[in-house]
Design a protein around this nucleic acid. Structure first.
Lengths: 358, 358
DNA sequence: CGATTTCATGTAATCCATTACATTGCACTG
DNA sequence: CAGTGCAATGTAATGGATTACATGAAATCG
């Protein structure tokens, strides 16, 4: 009665219409496969999970049935039993931000090499949305989270949180992170502007809530110190990483009548906005003003002029993040660590020696 | 013995180290919550799922325990039992492509309004990867797939496939789709170039494997016919939607010595590449050559000159796709349909009247 | 040849939450 | 006051796979 009842229920749910006559109902459970292949469910499961421990004849028979009936094991049942999903969620603030796409690619490479899948969650920097994805880990729908924001979502589970921080990092947190040495990288960019003869270098900072932005600002300040240039606080403005923020920052600096011959921006998008605003004010880049970005997004090469920027090792950041995640999942005891990669300045067309006279 | 055994196993798996002394093991199952709140598991489940059918006193007591112990129900068990995950996967060929990000946003809006979550899968147009995500639906890890490629993955399940096609569509398929009227939209772009006086209009087509690209090309050809202009097949080249493809297309056209005063590109990235190539050959955009793109990605506004392009209703495409998905999930019988939205030409700085003499 | 492994397979417990059905107690009706 | 209905809660079946343990047969050993 039970088998009968459940079968009837399933048909009802699926709806018996048009194709019911032509297409026989597909088999769906190990039980059914087992019955048809004339073995027990255990053997079916083994034939699929660890084929080597099943005799060849049985294995072939089972695989034939599985294939013929198009059987896919129910991953929910499997994951429930085994308590792992081999799925990790990568959280990114904004998928439109081209910076992340190559990081993701690095994550996915390592994930696939190790039998994991990656799904992406876009958070738009919303705490609520971050939390919603984090809850999926608490609810055992995913094994871990790689987050690319400077916040660590709370997951109410025991022991080490299966969370890795990529590109960003959280100070004083025992969450493992991979990121670049933002102080040095920003410093290198400003050093370069100094070697071009610039002395009044404006800075468009990112949101100070993010430690990496603080670091970039520090790199900027340290470079000025190294060059024995006065740090003019009026030449520093803050933006939110958007193109529009770059435009607004330039508008502000120009409207205040400050004098500068170069701008260092905390990311490429603000640099693109900055260039645009400068050009629309009749200033030439790089003849009048040099512009340097940060990240080296794909479009940086295609702006006019093309953008001089700090290239983050995006693929390596992703690969390393996923590698750390695997370490953590395989052994929750590994101590948390912060891995710091280095970044290189890529010189393109948006920088030039300071025009004499300006 | 069973309860004991399982508890020991869990501790063992989690590892009893440093924090074990300080932090009591957190409770994890309905059973434990039920025991502490002195009710049955059924009542706990009801208090969480349908609070209104539980007496206020009991409800408050259970919620207090749940909150205090940080209990999150195991979604695998729940989904296994209820046979739905309220999760849908959106597949996009390339997250770096800014076109999709706003579509995704539309999808997510509608999803959240209806209690669904969205996870993204990047396929890089690889059939294998598309299939891997599709298998997650077959394995019941997700309820459906919204795909933004012109291919429909095979899912070995009965009846209607929970698949919706967005932005692209597949001819003769009974998969529901939302997309724009590419013939008309492309036609409008070319019509506009014609009104500006252009007669030799080059076309950079997209991959002909995609029906929407075929449609855009048809729109181009029909517009030329309407204008009684001869269609010069040598002015049409094919690209793969990348910036580089746009550059190469222009290189090719210029090297062949063809004469044209405008280029219509099948997407914005190729248009950006085209502009770049034109400029690097000393041609001015739009004074010498007008360029029109397609999609209206975010950067289109920020190129110099800013790009005239066909704006797809990206948010609406996403919202409509998810709406169709919900319809399908709620009633697998709804007939498949193709919903066609319209797109508008956005005139910016990359187009100008044909220069006399060219 | 009897004893001991080893291999292949089967039986049944298990993962955890949901929910159909059963039960209890109380209010209300005629 | 017996009977009916409803509200609140409990018991136990259920979803579908994995896997510990059990079993039987064949292979190996002394």
């Amino acid at each position: 009665m039970s088998a009968d009842g459940s079968k009837r229920k399933r048909q009802g749910a699926k709806g018996v219409h048009a194709n019911a006559a032509a297409q026989p109902t597909r088999v769906r459970t190990v039980k059914e496969i087992a019955a048809i292949a004339k073995v027990s469910v255990a053997t079916v499961s083994r034939a699929l999970q660890r084929p080597e421990i099943v005799s060849e004849a049985t294995r072939l028979r089972i695989h034939e049935v599985v294939k013929r009936l198009g059987y896919t094991p129910n991953a929910l049942a499997r994951n429930l039993r085994t308590a792992r999903t081999r799925l990790i969620i990568a959280l990114l603030p904004d998928i439109a931000n081209p910076f992340f796409s190559e990081v993701i690619r690095g994550i996915e490479q390592v994930a696939h090499e190790n039998g994991y899948s990656v799904l992406l969650g876009e958070t738009q920097s919303s705490l609520v949305r971050e939390q919603a994805y984090a809850d999926m880990v608490a609810a055992r729908q995913a094994d871990g989270i790689i987050t690319m924001s400077p916040r660590v979502p709370a997951i109410p589970i025991d022991g080490r949180l299966p969370v890795i921080n990529a590109c960003e990092y959280v100070k004083d947190s025992d969450i493992s992170s991979v990121y670049i040495d933002n102080v040095t990288a920003a410093g290198a960019a400003v050093d370069y502007l100094v070697t071009l003869g610039h002395r009044d270098i404006a800075f468009i900072a990112g949101p100070p809530s993010s430690p990496i932005c603080v670091d970039r600002e520090q790199g900027y300040r340290l470079a000025l110190q190294r060059a024995k240039l006065p740090a003019n606080p009026l030449l520093t403005t803050i933006g939110d990483f958007s193109i529009e923020a770059g435009e607004r920052a330039i508008e502000l600096l120009l409207s205040q009548g400050h004098c500068f011959s170069a701008v260092f921006c905390s990311n490429d998008e603000m640099a693109i906005g900055a260039m645009r605003a400068l050009i629309s004010h009749g200033l030439r880049v790089p003849e009048d003003i040099s512009v340097v970005g940060f990240d080296d997004i794909r479009f940086a090469r295609y702006t006019s002029p093309s953008l001089t920027t700090v290239a983050q090792p995006k693929n390596a950041l992703g690969r390393e993040a996923m590698t750390m995640m695997l370490e953590l999942l395989n052994d929750p005891q590994v101590p948390p660590r912060k891995r710091v990669l280095s970044a290189d300045l890529v010189v393109r067309g948006s920088t030039a020696p300071r025009a004499t006279g300006r």
